[in-house]
């Protein structure tokens, strides 16, 4: 192959290293890193700091790999939605085949390395997380049912469980509750986003709840899930990873979150259009702070425990 033929095959918008990194969904990865780290640090029993670092890194790479496989499979949808149009595949910088190869390679690498660094239970849980996100959510549920985000949300809820398992080699009430917290948080978080990104999903033909059942039903669902979430979030305060700090944060944050959900529930479409979905947008923004502070409070309990301040 001559230089000229190589040159002719180079796409116009050639990918940089950053474009390949973008396949791993860095913003989602930051949530994975944070929750996995909290799960790992809150787990009983110690782990060497370097092994803890490696475990969090491999969990993050596994999460990123599933993001790349999601972009590979969903490139047709991403092309239609304005929110995802600039992703590496729809923008023509990375090919689908490249995304698939990167996703598969990093998936296998992250699972094997987590197994070697910690234990094979944690590695199996990470493999299941990747499988759940790519096959169950992306390939199956996303284009089939308006409950896609409810069941698919489990994929994003596994990282703290994997972190916990990396230390203990198993699951416990605490790790299941951390999983449930993210699992129940995902629907109100995502449906709030959907309420002000209406046309995007409709154009892409993704059966999101507000597209198939309307915005009023979506508001009802947001309220119900927020109430269930509040019960779980507060109850977690009375387990071994809870304490006064967590309880205070949980009560305050859930009171605000429930008030936000009630206020969205009482609104009509006309009111939403009139103020350009102001409350939905602020509810969505607050949901990010909500999750960050809950896991931050667990971390604070762990950090202060040696000084007799954390825990019960």
């Amino acid at each position: 192959m001559s230089d000229a033929s190589i040159h002719s095959q180079v796409p116009e918008n050639e990918a940089s290293f950053g474009d390949y990194f973008a396949l791993l969904k860095p913003r989602v990865m930051s949530l994975v890193v944070f929750t996995a780290m909290v799960g790992l640090l809150a787990a009983p029993g110690g782990v060497h700091p370097f092994i803890a670092f490696c475990a969090i890194l491999f969990i993050a790479i596994g999460g990123g790999a599933s993001g790349a496989l999601n972009m590979w499979y969903d490139s047709d949808i991403d092309q239609v939605m304005s929110r995802t149009k600039s992703r590496p595949i729809p923008s023509g910088k990375v090919t689908r085949e490249e995304a698939f190869a990167i996703g598969m390679t990093l998936s296998v690498m992250s699972v094997v390395m987590l197994g070697l660094a910690t234990n094979w239970f944690a590695a199996g849980l990470l493999a299941f997380t990747i499988f759940f996100y790519v096959v169950i959510y992306t390939m199956w549920l996303k284009r089939w049912t308006p409950q896609n985000i409810v069941i698919g949300g489990a994929a994003g809820a596994f990282p703290p469980m994997v972190g916990w398992a990396a230390v203990t080699g198993g699951v416990s009430v605490e790790s299941v509750l951390m999983f449930t917290l993210i699992f129940m948080w995902t629907p109100p978080h995502f449906w709030a986003l959907c309420l002000f990104m209406k046309s995007d999903y409709k154009d892409a033909g993704v059966p999101m709840l507000h597209v198939t059942h309307g915005r009023a039903v979506t508001r009802n669902h947001i309220l119900v899930y927020t109430l269930l979430l509040a019960a779980i979030a507060v109850s977690m305060a009375f387990t071994s990873i809870g304490g006064w700090i967590y309880l205070t944060v949980a009560v305050v944050m859930n009171a605000i979150f429930v008030a936000g959900a009630v206020s969205i529930w009482r609104r009509s479409d006309a009111q939403c259009e009139a103020d350009n979905h102001k409350r939905e947008k602020s509810f969505f923004g607050f949901s990010l702070l909500y999750l960050f502070l809950h896991f931050g409070a667990i971390l604070a309990e762990v950090a202060l425990a040696p000084y007799g301040l954390g825990g019960w």
Binding site: D3, I6, H7, V10, E14, A15, S16, F17, Y20, F21
Partner: peptide, 15 residues
């Protein structure tokens, strides 16, 4: 050195 190598330096360095 081909222009292609210069253009891909950043990517290669990242890898």
């Amino acid at each position: 050195q081909h222009e292609l190598h210069k253009r891909r330096f950043g990517r290669n360095l990242g890898v």
